[in-house]
Write a protein that binds this DNA or RNA. Structure first.
Length: 338
DNA sequence: TTAGTATT
DNA sequence: CATAATACTAAA
């Protein structure tokens, strides 16, 4: 029996391989989006396949994807995926999973150096085989080796997610540390933690401040920090507590609402919200809502402002996952103009 | 400045 | 035919 999880894995695998192959980003996105739609289903897909509308009734499933997934459900295999795997070494997906490794680099390592596995990459990186490749300098090789070492230490497993319950105290203590900084005016934990997901891949902290660089320097210097992954003018990423990633974003107080909205996500929610803004002649980013024509800022101080400007009631973070949520909220009478 | 990757 | 928007790093 093919489970929804199997279908999701297949769709994501197809997307990864297409991406390495350099396929049209719209096509790649279609497979990713289809996977995401399946994730949000509350029914087994094989059930839907057998019912009236069939797989085409699943949002994000057009003729091509529905056909391929129908085969997967009926036969337990996808001939399309098998053809892709014959063309593109499927072990490249493991390389793609390394942090800092994207489809362009993976494709180049394969085509130009013949690297197809993590072990081959490890050997090549340490033996100087990557030296002199365009766009891969000494720093890049260092990063690759570090990523390989980290992966090896985990026995090849992907970076583990953590249960929400196991993160509560870490989140609280980081929040307290930042809040104690004299330049920090307000601190919130955002991201999947704020959306109350049961497991989180990282922690996202947002700080309102008039002096972002100083706050970010302080953040990166917190004693529990094991490694600073990046530190810029508005954003810093670190590893804490056994390689767990924590991202910190610092914004001006008048942008706090927009930044909180952005940083809370989900990504799909942000994309839908920003698309909605565009259709209204507005543009939404983490600094506010702006008129497309003259760039005037029309909202940003609070989340409520941001949603209201887009004709929506404030949507609770827990509900910012469901693709239908924005449409549902738009139909709610409360926030529509009085 | 650009390419690539990362972030929600 | 289309595509959310932005930040950071390394390389050129």
């Amino acid at each position: 029996m093919v489970s929804n999880a199997d279908v999701i894995r297949t769709l994501e695998r197809i997307a990864d391989l297409l991406e390495i192959r350099g396929e049209n980003t719209f096509k790649v996105r279609a497979y990713r989006q289809a996977a995401e739609r399946v994730e949000n289903l509350d029914r087994p897909l094989h059930d839907i396949a057998a019912a009236d509308g069939g797989l085409r009734s699943v949002e994000g499933f057009g003729a091509a994807i529905a056909g391929k997934m129908a085969e997967l459900i009926a036969e337990g295999r996808s001939s399309y995926l098998e053809r892709l795997e014959a063309e593109i070494p499927p072990t490249l997906v493991d390389i793609l999973a390394l942090p800092g490794m994207g489809p362009r680099t993976v494709a180049r390592l394969w085509r130009d150096v013949g690297i197809t596995t993590v072990d081959e990459l490890d050997h090549a990186a340490r033996s100087g085989q990557l030296d002199g490749l365009p766009r891969i300098g000494a720093r890049s090789i260092e990063r690759i080796v570090a990523a390989l070492d980290a992966r090896a230490q985990r026995g090849g497993d992907p970076p583990p997610r953590r249960d929400r319950s196991a993160l509560v105290s870490l989140a609280q203590s980081l929040r307290d540390v930042l809040a104690a900084h004299p330049a920090a005016q307000r601190v919130e934990v955002a991201g999947s933690f704020r959306r109350e997901r049961e497991s989180c891949g990282d922690l996202d902290l947002l700080v309102a401040t008039d002096d972002a660089p100083v706050v970010l320097i302080a953040f990166a210097a917190v004693p529990q920090v094991e490694q600073v992954l990046a530190r810029g003018a508005t954003k810093s990423s670190v590893h804490i507590d056994g390689g767990f990633q924590v991202d910190c974003r610092a914004v001006a107080p008048q942008a706090f609402g927009a930044a909180l909205q952005y940083f809370t996500g989900s990504q799909a929610h942000n994309v839908r919200l920003r698309g909605r803004a565009l259709r209204m002649g507005l543009t939404l980013n983490e600094y506010g809502v702006f008129r497309t024509d003259d760039g005037t800022r029309v909202a940003g101080e609070t989340e409520e402002d941001v949603y209201a400007t887009l004709g929506l009631p404030w949507i609770p973070p827990q509900r910012r996952e469901d693709p239908a949520e924005i449409d549902a909220a738009a139909r709610a009478p409360v926030a529509m103009e009085v």
